[in-house]
Design a protein around this nucleic acid. Structure first.
Lengths: 335, 335
DNA sequence: TTATTAAATGAAATCGATTACACCCAACCA
DNA sequence: TGGTTGGGTGTAATCGATTTCATTTAATAA
């Protein structure tokens, strides 16, 4: 039952605990008939090894922690799938941690790493600073990063080129004839926001178009934020005909604001988001957005991190910059 | 750093490991100045206790496992939030397990319970049979269930009354003047499906309307399934003017099929789903659906289960039937 | 001052596995 | 026949904490 232990099995099979352990761990150093006896005893007693004892002794848990900002956001859920499937195929389990957008929760979850509950951690767009993250790595903990890059010899990263992505989006809008393009950024302190803004500016510069600071607003990466930001833009009374929102949620907020203000998308206002949330295909008009290889990033990083934990052979390649893809749909198409 | 242990701290502070342990566990049995010495040593050595050793000795992990069918589905994500917040407030952590719709994965994750990695498990609409689940409970493991009910003295359950819910939906459709109402069920073996079908039939009976088996189709709880099921219904050439889909995903599939077949919702076909997925508000027309108190179910059950683990005082109330709410939107409203 | 009691502390057992090391014994070789 | 060899097995140390029990120290009462 629930509380039989290795010594009970040993007694029942008339062998030592060492032998039972050998059977459990598929050692070749045990004769077929002994093995059979032991297996029979295990079966009869319904014995399952205590993972805590095992992990304590072996000093590993074969578990990877994954910290995401919000498990409700599909972006994270898909990354998790990538990590999980790869990890499982390499005999690792994953422990999913929902930081609920709070930095303190992230930190709490990091303690799982420090107290040996997990062998490594994958942080997906964490709020922790580069310095804080690097400190963990410097102390010998195994950490990987998704959706962000830190230049540190022990921290593998998988991320998209936000600058390039944003440039592509803005170029597309310019190509559609837009000259005044607003940008909705996410949290002011999020690297993604910053980089996307950078790409936005570069695209304008390359096209010889002026950068108008008033066309930048912050929308906190969520729907309400996007809604409010768009209203603020409108109140400024500056003309603009397109909005590039740093994610789909904010773009959805723009949709809502436009509906209220009777602004027709895309005829009067072009809109592009980022993430390819499933919803973008269901809204009217269908939303143009950017697809990032979420599953792939998860899978790539999980493999890399597990590799690193096992042979300590840090291959030089630890930065995986993957390509994103602009999906042009109705919301940004001039007729 | 990473590998200092309690004995190192003890030596540095010139005390015994027992004393350090007492400080760590906030025992009152330690003098202020000793305590200070110890805390200083802990601080200086950057010591963190090894959770594996601690859990092994104390025979608990203060961790709850949560097995969901698919982490990408918002329904589960919200339940998880409810569980997590409640658990955290009671000093418990949760370990989220994504079974990816596979029964074998569910079973794999159950082994976390059996090998003492978690103190208890919450299963959300699992594929495991009642008998299998009861067997775990009978063996002394702590299990709770969400979205399903098993009559077992040790298994607390939080679920909605599917029969009542389905009746309400069908009554609403009847009230809108529909006489031929199709039903799209989920997995044939899912209890939810079965119960919703039961409610559907009861509502018909109560209204004195005939039950037409040909109007029942299986849609596997996903969009493609709903799409295909609707097409099959249409091919049968039986008239019907409304569809009740056992979840929103399938209803979405119906939307797609209708678009292809140029059937206008709700004028020619009324549609109602279940779950209140966020998408339902964004589709055109807005989808009528049923809201279940997901967060509440999670919170309720987490509290109950933790209670049960701690005082072993099984209060008699272990079945929480919560009320769902029909949200009537555009897709089911005759003009 | 001494007896009594309570508060602090430490030594060692314990949780349940893995594994280094020692040992036994049968098979093989010289 | 005696000495190697090595496969199979057992004993005991170990992982890093908690906790029981015994002991020392300090505080209080007599």
């Amino acid at each position: 039952m629930k509380d039989s232990k290795i010594i009970d099995v040993a007694r029942r099979a008339n062998v030592s605990v060492a032998t039972v352990s050998r059977v459990l761990n598929a050692s070749h150093l045990v004769s077929p008939k002994t093995k059979e006896k032991v297996l029979k005893a295990i079966e009869e007693m319904n014995y399952t090894p205590n993972a805590l004892a095992k992990n304590l002794r072996s000093r590993k848990t074969m578990t990877l922690g994954v910290v995401v900002s919000d498990i409700l956001v599909a972006y994270y859920a898909e990354i998790i799938k990538g990590i999980e499937n790869t990890a499982n195929s390499l005999q690792y389990k994953i422990l999913i941690c929902d930081a609920q957008n709070q930095k303190e929760k992230e930190q709490e979850y990091m303690s799982l790493l420090m107290n040996r509950t997990v062998d490594g951690m994958i942080l997906v767009t964490p709020k922790l600073s580069n310095k804080e993250i690097a400190a963990y790595a410097d102390n010998g903990y195994t950490i990987g990063l998704i959706g962000r890059f830190i230049d540190h010899p022990n921290i593998p990263c998988a991320y998209t080129d936000n600058v390039k992505m944003a440039k592509e989006v803005v170029n597309h809008l310019i190509g559609q004839g837009h000259e005044k393009i607003a940008f909705l950024s996410g949290y002011a302190d999020a690297i993604d926001s910053y980089e996307r803004l950078e790409g936005y500016m570069k695209a304008l510069r390359d096209a010889g178009m002026p950068f108008i600071p008033d066309l930048i607003e912050n929308g906190n990466f969520n729907e309400e934020g996007g809604y409010a930001a768009f209203k603020r833009l409108k109140e400024k009374n500056i003309d603009f005909t397109a909005v590039f929102a740093a994610n789909d949620e904010m773009a959805l907020g723009v949709y809502k604001a436009c509906r209220e203000l009777s602004i027709e998308i895309p005829r009067q206002m072009a809109v592009v988001g980022v993430d390819n949330n499933r919803i973008t295909k269901y809204v009217t008009p269908k939303m143009s957005t950017v697809e990032q290889p979420k599953y792939t990033m998860g899978a790539l990083l999980a493999e890399k991190l597990i590799d690193q934990m096992n042979d300590n052979a840090f291959s030089d390649k630890r930065a995986f910059k993957v390509d994103s893809k602009l999906l042009i749909r109705e919301s940004s198409l001039s007729s």
